[in-house]
């Protein structure tokens, strides 16, 4: 169950994971993208941190919306609108339900609609989808989902221009999404 408090903690934890793995994410992005995913996500999480710090006693909807706007206005590229749309959809839904899997499902639908990607296209959807569909998120579900992108051929985004050459690399957006869900798992009281 998400609350304003544990969602903020979730973001603190996600921030630290992005900070620790910024260079790794950019490295993953080099062979199949343009090598900036770590930098872009770091800029976005700085934006999220700043927006959240300005809120006084916010409710869950305000927190989720602030996260969305922080990401949308700072990340740029494809990841900004996709992550941003995910949190915006959760913000829209959270008055109805605070259950994580229900919120992740609407977020996933938003990502698919915004980017036009589906399962198997070697994108963040390949991590969001199995996680949103599981009733009990585990580290194994997350890790397996990330690993599954390695053998896929990219069909969306810049990696798609590589054709078969995109096979054999992890998708950077799938890996950063993995950090998001690992951070969620590690935040007490969210599940």
């Amino acid at each position: 169950m998400l609350t304003a408090e544990n969602t903020k903690k979730w973001m603190d934890s996600f921030y630290r994971k992005i900070e620790e793995n910024k260079d790794y994410l950019s490295e993953l992005d080099t062979p199949i993208g343009d090598g900036d995913h770590g930098n872009n996500m770091m800029r976005g999480m700085d934006g999220v941190k700043n927006s959240l710090a300005q809120l006084q006693d916010p409710d869950l909807k305000t927190v989720l919306k602030a996260i969305a706007m922080g990401l949308i206005s700072k990340v740029g590229g494809a990841s900004g609108p996709l992550y941003g749309t995910a949190f915006l959809e959760m913000a829209k839904k959270c008055s109805e339900t605070q259950k994580v899997n229900e919120l992740l499902s609407v977020a996933l639908a938003g990502i698919k609609k915004r980017g036009g990607a589906t399962e198997g296209d070697k994108t963040m959807v390949d991590v969001w989808s199995p996680v949103a569909q599981s009733n009990a998120i585990t580290p194994k579900i997350i890790d397996d989902a990330i690993a599954s992108t390695k053998d896929m051929q990219a069909r969306k985004g810049r990696a798609s221009y590589l054709g078969e050459r995109s096979i054999g690399h992890l998708d950077p957006g799938a890996v950063s999404s993995g950090y998001l869900f690992t951070a969620l798992l590690e935040t007490e009281g969210t599940l």
Partner: peptide, 12 residues
């Protein structure tokens, strides 16, 4: 003008 090789954001 977005970041280098990165699309600008919607607000801009």
């Amino acid at each position: 003008a977005g970041q280098v090789f990165t699309s600008p954001t919607p607000d801009q």
